[in-house]
Design a protein around this nucleic acid. Sequence first.
RNA 1: GCCCGGAUGGCGGAAUUGGUAUACGCGCACGACUUAAAAUCGUGUCCCGAAAGGGUUGUGGGUUCGACUCCCACUCCGGGCACCA
Length: 827
Amino acid sequence: MWFYIYKMNEYDHKEIEKKWQKKWAEEELYKTSESSDKPKEYVLDMFPYPSGEGLHVGHPKGYIATDIYSRYKTMRGFNVLHPMGWDAFGLPAENYALKNKVHPRQAVEKNIARYKEQLSIIGFNYDWDREINTTDPAYYKWTQWIFLQLFKHGLAYESNEPINWCPSCKTGLANEDLDNGACERCGSTVEKKRIRQWVLRITDYAERLLNDLDELKEWPEHIKELQRNWIGKSEGAEIDFKIKTQNAKRKTTTQNLKFTVFTTRPDTLFGATYAVLSPEHTILESLEDVIDNWGDVKHYIDESSHKTEIERTAEGKEKTGVELKGVKAINPTNKEEIPIFIADYVLADYGTGAIMAVPAHDERDFQFAKKYELPIRMVICPHYPAPTCPILDEAYTGAGHLVVSGKFDGLSNEEAKQKITEFVGGKMKTTYKLRDWVFSRQRYWGEPIPLIHCEKCGVVPVSEKDLPVVLPEVESYEPTGTGESPLANISEWVNIACPKCGGKGKRETNTMPQWAGSSWYYLAYTLGTKKLKRKTQNYLDDKNIKKLLNFWIPVDMYVGGAEHATRHLIYARFWHKFLYDQGFVSHSEPFRRLKSPGLIAGADGRKMSKRFGNVINPDDVVATYGADTLRLHEMFMGPFEQGAAWSEESIIGPRRFVEKVWRLSKHIGSETDARDESKLHQTIKKVTEDIEQFKFNTAISALMILANEMERKEKISAIHYSQFLILLSPFAPHVAEELWRETLGHKTSIHLEPWPSHDESKIISEGFVITVQMNGKVRDTFTTETELSEDEIKEKALALEKIKKWIDGQSIKKIIYVKNKIVNIVI
RNA sequence: GCCCGGAUGGCGGAAUUGGUAUACGCGCACGACUUAAAAUCGUGUCCCGAAAGGGUUGUGGGUUCGACUCCCACUCCGGGCACCA
């Protein structure tokens, strides 16, 4: 019998959590609707990539935070949208499918089912009516539609420039897909390869992507800084150098031969003692006949084309190069003939692919000049006037005044920049490190690019009414490795009449990169699954759809990993700005507030990975401790944006806390008193402020303190306990609901209760603890019940026995008083 | 090399933004309950010291009546970029 009662009272997380998850779904607790006059709040998680591995305990950290935040916002009277979906196109899904010999679609379906199950047992409040899946044709027809708009506005172009090629994944990659010169997915060293590809003109938006960061006041500063560095703006000048051939008998027309350099230091132009072209520079072909050592030059070009990015940029690597014999460049300032080199330290795809070299004022040029014994001429002096310029043992890159620069001598180098540029007929120019977005992949598992190549008309977009261009179902989808997409072999799919002239046409067979679908998914949620699937003619250019978009957009709170700072978050901002320019959305930035959860590492401090065998599965934790405990633990581990190692040991703390809350329900039955009320209102204040700022660890700490207070009492008041449960409910939704409905007997869910607001007048002062310091060191404290005047406090402080002892005849220089806090006696 | 973070007990961390450093939790020790254990509760727990007292927020210096907090220099750890002209 005794044992039976014990069982009855026991907190059984398994039963409770299952029960309420089912009930909440039945009651449709988390349905979102636009027909509400409440203010809207759009809370968004970065949607997951459903991989074959399933979720580990690190993944839900951000989801727990948005779940708490969105429940809190709902209780605060907001109309909350909190959706979830799947980012399922791209390399990982396809590589997984290839490895396991299943079709990617089946793999994705299976993985999604598993993910959904894993998420559901943690008790998230997603509105699954708005679930999206980027690989659903009903979804990607919209992705294709947006691509067509980009194409029609000249922001998508075909190119044959050499790009990053992953030999293992057998596809071209964007700069953003690289990790230290290696494929971000498989770790293979990336090569440069010249293949036909589609590219998006993200660089047209570089300036706005950079400037508008300043408006994102509620983004973490470090993420904005990452984007600024990635965009990498630098201001300089483009200046033409004429080429003079020394050998007139060759047949090449040598008139007007020139190349353009980009430099941020046009002020040093008089010091340019040679010039360097990148080995890929296109002018080299036309110089073949006039270069005396063409064999050597050709050899160097071939060699560097076979080198990987890593080999070319290896740290500490000595610079190499070959002089172009038989040609000279003319320094436009002083008409001096200077040698031209090719060297692979000059990058083809930055600036103009050519530089003027000023060894005296650039470290790289200095090294190169030392090696090839080229003249080093100082033209900026730190101290002016200087009788002679010192001999340099390293480049001087600082500021100064011009010397050896003709009529510009004596100018400060900042002033000289523009003047010299004008003098030589150059133009000021802004350059970015950001590259245009290589947008095609030679892989199967992606959105087909909706374009048709016609023999007569060239590239023709697929008619909008014919979207989606469905990815054909095929047996074999292995990448070819030739630079062609595996789709190219499916002739019945590829061959199609040109939409313009009806003649012979072929479909574009490259597919879009993984980042395409995620560049607008936050817009898709606002439509809901039904509208997304419905037949539409106008897509985003539809009055009703625009209305929905502008009801919810911008996203008010966006939570996801900082690793997306220079990938998804740049791409999405780019697409959004484009859609804004077309009038489809009314805000120029998609995400108002951004938070990035710190990584949860394995217990060994390393990143959780199957490879290290340190993966903790949330299902197991939920089974052992319960979802509420898991949620509390992950939020209590430390500051949200800071990483932490998983600790199986300390999860017992949050579990004990939940059990304590459970036990407290057996002690209800007293009246409220003012002291309790004061503590409650302090807690309301603290928890509310902390949730707003994503300081969940201290919010939970405040709840624990209040629970400890309640526990100290014989009996607690039902009203206070109820209020406490409401504060707890976003963190531990199941146990709060169980106690709310079953123990306290409420008919409706605790999650529909209004959030309590704190009443400052209920927070009573428990007297003032005055700290008495001598020379800033704490010597004693005393308490006053009521607020005393400054003089009274000082008097009391000086009367303390300990203080008297310390003063002991010494003279008091002054007494500093901080109201109701501190008396500091200086002797 | 450049740009961001960070460093507080045995451990995770807190500190109203210059005012009693170490809240809350883990761990540990002791005690209560128990035949016993578990669970739970209570007490203690930064270091030295018997005490008085002294020291302590990575290191060194500075500003201040007073510094985890502000300034200067440095060390270490994490992240990003990296021959970007």
